[in-house]
Amino acid sequence: MVSTLPNIDPDLIGILEQVSDPEIPVLSVLDLGVIREAVIRDEVVHIKLTPTYTGCPAMDTISVDLKQALQQNNFKSKIELVLSPAWTTDWLSPKGKAKLEAYGIAPPLGEELDKKALMDGERIVKCTHCQSTNTKVISAFGSTACKALFQCLDCLEPFDYFKCLK
């Protein structure tokens, strides 16, 4: 059994919290759960970064931003991209999910409910504008790979939904 809890040196948390996802700037890389390891060995920070989606262009930017943030704190760093275990939306922190919603992106539901909302058109995703769950999926593929497009049938506004990835 592979541990899914990331191994992060407490001394680095403050720095890592400053690095955000370029496409969803309210989320730090820690909220997103893409840092699987951050340890200091021989005065070099070793980071294991995992992609959300394989083709996510944000990963290259995140890598560069991490290096920069660490450099500003006088750390040399080595960043390694790891694929296994594969990222899942379960690794979004609770704080991250709350921030997503406040930002206007409905956070992912559990696997079963997600399927019901996306495939069977069940009205269960909460509108980020008016909190109504009277909403429907417009497109399972949204403005970025991780999101689907929804519309609220009460306030009629469109909004993004962060798809469950398991």
């Binding site: 989606y53 083709g55 996510c56 262009p57 497109s139 593929f141 949204g142 790979a145 497009l149």
Partner: peptide, 15 residues
């Protein structure tokens, strides 16, 4: 919607 979906799929394949 289909335009975005197909190009999303393209991006995944390139990943």
């Amino acid at each position: 919607e289909t335009d975005i979906a197909l190009t999303n799929i393209s991006l995944d394949l390139f990943g």
